[in-house]
Write a protein that binds this DNA or RNA. Structure first.
Lengths: 250, 250
DNA sequence: CCCAGGTGTGGCGTAGGCAACACAGTTGGG
DNA sequence: CCCAACTGTGTTGCCTACGCCACACCTGGG
């Protein structure tokens, strides 16, 4: 709202203000907001606040009032549900350029799950009402929102289906394959996943325990389908071929 | 069935406009469209077509082009994913007044799952593009859409979490409880669920097999927490008390 | 160098899927 | 009205996938 005037007067009489607000740059570089008008962006950036989190740090816990939305500027955020016995599942993951939205429409909404920084991350928090009023003003933007939700819904449904009718092995195979495709960098041996999620984390993503994941990956290694060295996991092209579009293994 | 009304007006010599189009009435009575302008509704109703389906009948199968959306005017639609070994899960259920949306935003979207009529149902099919152009024209409506998706996402996340970390028993307890609250009619003994889903269907909803569901319900009956007679299931208030907000049982 | 956090492996116990039947209810046809 | 043909339910037995426990080995960051 004021932002434009702000920057302009900056040079002249501004006591202490960054010439190119980091929040604004963050918004500009965020894929999710690509359809937004510059005016909305700068208006939003004024009321937003940047905060960074270390790997594993808790960003918010279930039950907290959902009065703010978080843009993932850098890093990765996981939405985690904790069960009784210390077990937990990762329900969703938000990578850089996406936005964590939960209970957006409930009047007195509260977060339904915990948000954890999966790695060192930089988040931009925006007041929910402010955010929503911009969405409300622009049908195209509202559609972006709907599309985003649809994508998330599709993912959730896939996971549900897998949990209900596949075994741990196939679930792991599939997530390794997609991980390779989305994160992997090509190399002579195959797709290399640098900074591969912990086996515990992999387990959480597919509803399995650490040990089982370990066993399966070890077996894959023995078969030469995968090379695991420390934090780096290499997925061979053959494995990829087997687990994309087809699914059958003994 | 609609055919009757149709023929009647036809004979009466109205070549172009039905005085009270069944499609329009359907739209008007559908909760999902309550925020829509009358103009949009009648425009849509003109291009919509009503069709009815018997219980268990397949409405559409995975892979079909998602070029139409379906409003559930009467009855209930289940979205089902079929796995290899004949097993299947119910991923979502749409009751009367809701609208089945899938792959709404993909350019060449195809349905990702099968749609089955859970009971005798009446559906109104609308061409997707037509539908979308109305949504696009009105931010408020687009927001309704987003809200709808968010609700579905929340449900999906709950199911995922349960599948990953609760056992069949607690899952069943919870769905029985919600079923009682949403479908049940009060009675001296408790909430009566008339036309309760088959045990097979219950199993599909929670990713369990028929036998297990049977065992658990039988046990509940023995404990007097539930009365199962034929197609009717009665949930006692005590059971409800136990499984709403609290969850712990031996 | 050391400690913490990640990984490999073995054993044990069990939830729950699959198969297999036997007994209802309901439908419908003669 | 009665007997088939179904469709849904109760129950029992077997068998495996996998979670949990327990412990030993890496490995990389301070």
């Amino acid at each position: 709202m004021q932002a434009l005037a702000f920057t302009r007067h900056d040079a002249a009489s501004q006591p202490r203000e960054l010439p190119a607000s980091p929040a604004l740059t963050a918004l500009r570089n965020t894929a999710w907001f690509s359809a937004w008008s510059p005016a909305s962006l700068s208006a939003l950036s004024v009321v937003g606040s940047l905060r960074s989190f270390g790997a594993g740090q808790v960003i918010a816990t279930a039950g907290k009032a959902a009065d703010t939305v978080a843009v993932v500027v850098k890093g990765r955020v996981r939405v985690v549900h904790r069960g009784e016995g210390g077990r937990e599942v990762t329900l969703e993951a938000f990578r850089a350029g996406t936005i964590c939205l939960d209970s957006l429409f409930e009047a007195q909404g509260t977060l339904s799950n915990d948000w954890i920084a999966a790695e060192t991350s930089l988040l931009l928090f925006l007041p929910r009402d402010e955010f929503m009023s911009h969405v409300r003003a622009n049908a195209e933007v509202a559609l972006t929102l709907a599309r985003d939700f649809e994508r998330r819904l599709a993912r959730a449904k896939t996971l549900t289906a897998e949990l209900a009718l596949s075994d741990v092995q196939s679930r792991l195979y599939r997530t390794l394959a997609t991980l390779a495709q989305e994160e992997g960098e090509a190399s002579p041996d195959g797709q290399v996943i640098r900074k591969c999620p912990t086996q515990q984390e992999l387990g959480n993503m597919i509803g399995a325990c650490r040990e089982t994941v370990s066993r399966i990956i070890a077996e894959l290694g023995r078969q030469g389908l995968v090379i695991s060295r420390g934090r780096r996991l290499t997925i061979t092209p053959q494995f990829l071929a087997m687990n994309t579009a087809a699914a059958g293994e003994a």
